[in-house]
């Protein structure tokens, strides 16, 4: 069981411009991602949308496999900027590490 936080996307805005709410989970980003395998970055964006922070934290290493190449953002039919959502999540955790 994982707790959800519907306000999480709003909280993320402190770490970057975030259009994650626009995502309708079509999976184009995961299909074009050079990492090809699994559901990255779609899964992370879905977790962010529902505020499943525990899940993101558990799988946070995955965020740093992202090449920041921007192909997902270029091809996103919703303009949800998946690459920026991933970068914003990285910033969130990096900021937490700095504080710790």
């Amino acid at each position: 069981m994982s707790a959800v936080n519907p306000a999480f996307l709003d909280e993320l805005e402190a770490y970057g411009e975030n259009a994650g709410a626009l995502c309708f989970n079509c999976g184009t980003c995961a299909a074009v991602c050079p990492l090809d395998g699994g559901h990255f970055p779609r899964k992370m964006i879905r977790y962010a949308q529902i505020g499943a922070v525990d899940r993101i934290r558990e799988e946070s290493r995955e965020l740093w496999r992202c090449l920041h190449c921007g192909l997902c953002t270029q091809t996103c039919p919703r303009g949800a900027n998946p690459g920026e959502v991933i970068l914003t999540l990285k910033r969130l955790f990096a900021a937490e590490w700095r504080k710790s």
């Binding site: 740093w64 999540l89 990096a94 700095r98």
Partner: peptide
């Protein structure tokens, strides 16, 4: 050096 790697890795500060 521009610092771009820190940006890419999410170390915004």
């Amino acid at each position: 050096y521009s610092g771009i790697l820190l940006y890419d890795l999410g170390d915004q500060e």
